[in-house]
Amino acid sequence: MTVHVDQALLQHVAKLARIEVASEQAAATTAAFAAMVAMAERLADVEVGDLEPMQHPDHPYPDARADEAGAVLPPQALEANAPRFGAGGFVVPRVVE
């Protein structure tokens, strides 16, 4: 698949990723992004047949854990790292559903 990389595609992807691309950087970022996509397009040259994609090394992994409740963090530990904390929770701008 040959991808036509333009600023529209870049902005679409940036929106999904919650990254803002300022208009004065858009050309340079698009060029870098296009180079990365071009590198990724080399994957198409490899004959892969119907190989199952490999998502993990085929190693031994542990079984599920037992259903046992354990220690939690004191809320103060959460508050210590929080940009804004109040009413017992993380405070963000008002969300309307």
């Binding site: 990724a40 994957l43 198409a44 490899v46 892969v48 190989l51 199952e52 994609p53 490999m54």
Partner: peptide
Amino acid sequence: ARAGQVRRK
């Protein structure tokens, strides 16, 4: 997905 296939290969 294709990268995963190449990885397997």
